[in-house]
Amino acid sequence: MSKATRATMALEKAGVAFTVHRYDYDPGAERVGLQAAEAIGEVPERVLKTLMARVDGKPVCVIVPSDREVSMKKLAAAFGGKSAEMMKPADAERMTGYKVGGISPFGQMRRVPTAIEQQSLAHALVYINGGQRGLQVRLAPDDARATLDARVVPVIA
């Protein structure tokens, strides 16, 4: 496993304080975010998953607690759209330059509008994928929001 990823380099370049946490990634896990939370010994609401979606056909990134699901209606509304749908895994990989299970909102190949679930900002520190399967970065959620210029909105179902 690489010591640096595009995600960790983007965080360093932005001057964000973070720590790196590695774990044994299980490719057969039914829910990757929950498996990550369990593997690092953290509560699921502090381990955030990065999802790629489309709102009115345009790509967006959404960050939510690993134990929650995104409301497509709320996601569309967050970006001023009428409809939202999850991006197909192959499209998400092409767009971000990361493999599914290792998609980070930081250092994506192409920057897209991003939303972060408002409840996530209630925690002092959260974990977000660090750009590789089995790699999480721990940081202040407001630092993540600021670095990504993310909208803070209620998007969970």
Score class of each variant (00 low, 15 high):
residue 82 K to S: 04
residue 8 T to E: 02
residue 26 D to L: 07
residue 12 E to K: 14
residue 71 S to C: 12
residue 61 C to H: 06
residue 33 G to P: 10
residue 27 P to C: 10
residue 23 Y to D: 11
residue 69 E to R: 12
residue 28 G to Y: 12
residue 60 V to M: 10
residue 54 R to I: 00
residue 36 A to G: 03
residue 66 S to K: 00
residue 16 V to W: 12
residue 70 V to K: 04
residue 65 P to F: 06
residue 46 R to D: 11
residue 10 A to M: 14
residue 24 D to A: 15
residue 49 K to A: 12
residue 77 A to C: 01
residue 36 A to I: 02
residue 15 G to H: 13
residue 37 A to G: 07
residue 53 A to F: 11
residue 74 K to W: 02
residue 55 V to D: 05
residue 33 G to W: 04
residue 21 H to C: 05
residue 15 G to C: 07
residue 53 A to N: 06
residue 67 D to H: 14
residue 21 H to V: 12
residue 62 V to I: 11
residue 36 A to S: 03
residue 19 T to L: 08
residue 64 V to C: 04
residue 37 A to F: 14
residue 25 Y to S: 06
residue 49 K to Q: 04
residue 42 E to K: 11
residue 79 F to K: 06
residue 52 M to T: 13
residue 61 C to Q: 06
residue 82 K to W: 00
residue 8 T to W: 00
residue 55 V to E: 00
residue 49 K to W: 06
residue 82 K to P: 00
residue 32 V to I: 14
residue 53 A to Q: 03
residue 76 A to L: 05
residue 8 T to S: 13
residue 46 R to P: 00
residue 10 A to K: 13
residue 19 T to C: 04
residue 81 G to V: 00
residue 56 D to R: 01
residue 30 E to F: 10
residue 64 V to H: 09
residue 48 L to P: 11
residue 23 Y to V: 12
residue 58 K to A: 10
residue 30 E to V: 14
residue 19 T to P: 10
residue 19 T to W: 05
residue 28 G to K: 14
residue 32 V to G: 02
residue 12 E to I: 08
residue 10 A to F: 05
residue 42 E to L: 01
residue 71 S to G: 01
residue 68 R to W: 12
residue 35 Q to M: 04
residue 69 E to D: 13
residue 25 Y to G: 03
residue 48 L to W: 05
residue 76 A to N: 05
residue 77 A to Q: 13
residue 48 L to Q: 15
residue 18 F to N: 02
residue 71 S to V: 10
residue 46 R to Q: 14
residue 21 H to P: 06
residue 9 M to I: 12
residue 29 A to V: 12
residue 36 A to V: 01
residue 32 V to S: 11
residue 62 V to R: 05
residue 11 L to W: 03
residue 52 M to V: 12
residue 71 S to W: 03
residue 50 T to Q: 01
residue 78 A to D: 08
residue 30 E to Y: 10
residue 68 R to C: 07
residue 63 I to G: 03
residue 21 H to K: 04
residue 73 K to S: 15
residue 37 A to Y: 07
residue 22 R to C: 08
